[in-house]
Amino acid sequence: MNGVDLFLLGRALMKIGEDALPEPPGGSGKYAGSARMVLVVASDIAEHPESAVGEIATRTGLPQSQVSTAIARLKEAGTVFTTPDPADRRRALVSQAPGTSDRLAQVRATGIEDALATALGTDDPARVAEVAQALERLARSLLPDRGL
Rank of each mutant, 00 (worst) to 15 (best):
H48F: 14
D114F: 08
E113N: 12
E47K: 14
I112R: 11
L116K: 09
L142H: 06
D44S: 13
R91H: 15
R59M: 00
A97C: 04
G10Y: 03
S95F: 04
S51Q: 07
G29W: 06
V41Q: 03
Q106E: 10
L74V: 00
L62P: 06
E50K: 14
L13Q: 07
D19N: 15
G10T: 04
T60S: 12
R90E: 14
R127F: 09
A72T: 14
A42L: 10
L9Q: 13
V107W: 09
V131P: 00
I71R: 00
A87L: 09
D44G: 02
L8F: 06
V53S: 09
R11D: 15
M1L: 02
G29L: 08
S95A: 07
D5G: 14
G54I: 10
L148M: 10
T69H: 06
S65Y: 07
A117W: 13
S28I: 10
V128Y: 08
P86V: 01
R146F: 08
Y31H: 06
D124G: 04
G17W: 13
L6D: 14
E18Q: 12
G147T: 11
A126L: 10
E55T: 10
G10Q: 09
L6P: 11
S28V: 08
G111Q: 10
P125C: 11
A132P: 00
E55Y: 03
Q133A: 13
G10W: 03
A132Q: 11
L6G: 12
T69K: 02
E113M: 11
M1S: 07
E23A: 03
P22C: 01
G3Y: 02
A129S: 14
A117L: 08
I45S: 00
I71W: 00
A20C: 03
G10D: 14
D124P: 05
P25E: 07
A32H: 08
A129W: 04
A134Q: 13
A117C: 05
M14A: 15
F81Q: 09
G147P: 06
G147M: 07
R73C: 03
D102A: 05
I45M: 01
T60Y: 05
E50H: 12
S141P: 11
A52Y: 05
G99V: 03
A12Q: 12
E47C: 04
Q96P: 05
P144R: 15
L62C: 09
A42G: 12
V80P: 00
E47G: 09
L138N: 10
A77C: 11
A20H: 09
L62I: 14
